[in-house]
Amino acid sequence: MVSGIFIIITSQNYIKKIVGLAIFQTSVFVFFVSLAKIIDGTAPILNSQNNVYSNPLPHVLILTAIVVGVATSALGLAIVLQIYKNYGSIEENEIKKEELKENN
């Protein structure tokens, strides 16, 4: 989780930032899934042998969150593509330089 945030903050490359974001989100997903684990539990399938099973709800929630995460990454990448078309770079410091030039 922390490494994800670290990447977001420190890396200059926009795609790396998105990767960092994905790592950050995934860590939270794992956190959720770990909540659902019950010792000796199996998959929540209704049959007579297993009456101890993991809580399915966090899995469902995370399924939703994964979809959201994918959409976020996709949108982010689309914007990065547009940034590349407009600025010719996806490095934050280069774009900042260009912005400064534009302002002066």
Binding site: I8, I18, L21, V68, G76, I79, Q82, I83
Partner: peptide
């Protein structure tokens, strides 16, 4: 610059949501 603003919002917003 709208692109940079949108990207910024995306990253910060996603961190907030997470």
């Amino acid at each position: 610059k709208a692109l940079l603003a949108a990207f910024n919002y995306l990253i910060i917003g996603a961190i907030g949501a997470t």
